[in-house]
Simulated scan of single mutants.
Amino acid sequence: MARRIALGLGVATVLVLSGCSSGASSDSATATSPAPEVSLVPITPIEATNLGGTPLDKATLQRAALTLSDLPADFDIVPDPVEDLGLAPAPSTSDSDKSTTDPAACAAVLAPISTQIPGSVASITKMFAGPDFTSIDQDSASFADGTAAATAFRTMQETLAGCAEYSGTDADGMTVSYRVGAAHQPSVGDASFSYRIITTSEGFTLVADVVVAAVGTTLTQLSATAPTPIAPDVLGSMAVTAAQRLSVPTP
């Protein structure tokens, strides 16, 4: 399932992303801080070293993923139309789809890891919708060995570094602008990086905060989006939970 989903809000385009923490209360999860008025900090890629271990299969990734019990109140699962509802896959192209990205390479930003980096052994995507245009998503991909996982970890950062500012249109042809910069979440798992995306369309702004963590040969991408940023400690706690789940997956 594609990570970016257009939601109607007048003429605004809304991006659906991911995030939250185990045991977080509704109040703490929805606490926000003002969006930054200054330029975002450029992303400088870091290396993930000494990654290794046995890749996880899809069933194990599913069991290790965050669930509603790990999220704050008032969030619901967004079912996958194909896997959960049994619908036919959507066509890859549509005459009515007017979405574009400029530069084209930036269309990979926040796409599921398995979409950005083909060749993973197994992958999953979980999406949750909350109140007031908030959303929580997690996607994970397991690679054959530590070298492949480390390469994917760096490639994702290089894509972000080349997409500090870009633009595009949504499926209805509305103009959307994006700004991307580094964030400063504490490291989790074997290695991690964090970033922020500020998306604006027709005067409406959404802020997405994202953590990508490497745990063995598996990468997981966890993001939270809302009109104002998620509380940093909530995102941090969520990232810790996600990494711990992958380091000791449930049999």
Rank of each mutant, 00 (worst) to 15 (best):
142 S>T: 08
164 A>L: 10
137 D>I: 06
135 S>V: 11
122 A>V: 00
159 T>N: 11
130 G>N: 05
125 T>S: 11
147 T>A: 15
133 F>K: 05
133 F>E: 00
128 F>D: 05
151 T>W: 07
163 C>L: 06
132 D>K: 15
147 T>S: 15
140 S>N: 08
121 V>A: 10
123 S>V: 01
157 Q>S: 09
144 A>E: 10
134 T>Y: 04
147 T>M: 09
150 A>T: 01
152 A>S: 12
163 C>V: 09
159 T>K: 10
139 D>C: 06
163 C>R: 08
153 F>T: 00
141 A>V: 02
164 A>F: 13
134 T>N: 10
134 T>P: 02
151 T>S: 15
136 I>Y: 09
127 M>A: 13
149 A>T: 00
154 R>Y: 10
131 P>M: 11
121 V>K: 09
161 A>L: 09
135 S>T: 10
132 D>R: 13
143 F>Y: 15
161 A>H: 07
132 D>Q: 12
139 D>E: 08
130 G>E: 03
146 G>S: 09
123 S>A: 15
131 P>F: 12
147 T>Q: 12
141 A>K: 09
135 S>R: 02
128 F>V: 01
153 F>V: 00
135 S>Q: 04
130 G>Q: 05
123 S>M: 05
163 C>Q: 04
156 M>K: 14
138 Q>M: 02
162 G>D: 15
140 S>R: 02
154 R>D: 13
157 Q>R: 11
164 A>T: 14
137 D>M: 09
153 F>C: 03
159 T>D: 13
137 D>W: 07
154 R>L: 15
164 A>I: 05
162 G>A: 15
143 F>Q: 10
161 A>S: 12
157 Q>M: 03
144 A>W: 07
144 A>G: 14
149 A>G: 06
138 Q>H: 00
162 G>S: 14
151 T>V: 14
163 C>W: 04
154 R>T: 15
153 F>Y: 14
133 F>I: 05
126 K>C: 02
154 R>F: 09
132 D>L: 12
163 C>A: 05
140 S>L: 10
137 D>L: 13
130 G>P: 01
164 A>V: 08
127 M>F: 04
123 S>K: 12
140 S>A: 11
156 M>A: 15
122 A>Q: 01
129 A>R: 12
144 A>F: 06
138 Q>V: 05
121 V>C: 04
149 A>M: 01
140 S>M: 07
139 D>F: 06
153 F>W: 05
157 Q>H: 06
162 G>C: 03
122 A>Y: 03
161 A>R: 08
156 M>C: 10
147 T>G: 11
158 E>Y: 15
126 K>T: 02
162 G>Q: 12
142 S>P: 15
145 D>K: 14
121 V>I: 03
145 D>H: 11
156 M>W: 08
144 A>P: 04
